[in-house]
Amino acid sequence: MSEYVYIMIGSILGAMGYALLVKASVKSLCPIFIVSTLGAVVYCVCDSLEFSVFAAHMFSAFAVCILSEISARLWRMPAVVIMFPSLIPLVPGRPLYLAVSNIINSNYSAAFDSGETTLLVASGIAGGMIISMVIFATVNTAILYVHKKMRKTKA
């Protein structure tokens, strides 16, 4: 349980710190905080349910992207402003570092495993992003279509 508390604190601090580093506006800090917290919650739930590394990152990235798009419309700002800092805690820094460290220590089999995890995590994040984009584009098109139909009916 304490492990998840550290993950939550770390990912929220990480996302908020990154937002300041890349000069996000003060207005955007509130949605970034909410989205990164919920993203970390999804990751912790997936991890506690013993999902694979790929699935855990995919679901978290999916949640972050969908929530970023929704918050972007609520706060009237581009979705990337919220999405980039909120996705940062999912980036595979640890396996990349372990791969390098194992290569230095001539532990090639462990280095290969870490490299594989890096690629799996990166693919998981990409997968989550792609699924959310497809869903959001479909919903957007449907809403626009309904709006057009309603306007025509009124006219």
Partner: peptide
């Protein structure tokens, strides 16, 4: 145009890395 002074960005970087150091044990 920048939303705040460079010092705030440096502090942000410190919070960011400190957070991840905790995150990774």
């Amino acid at each position: 145009l920048d939303p705040y002074r460079p010092l705030v960005s440096h502090v942000g970087a410190a919070i960011f890395v400190a957070g991840f150091t905790l995150f990774f044990g």
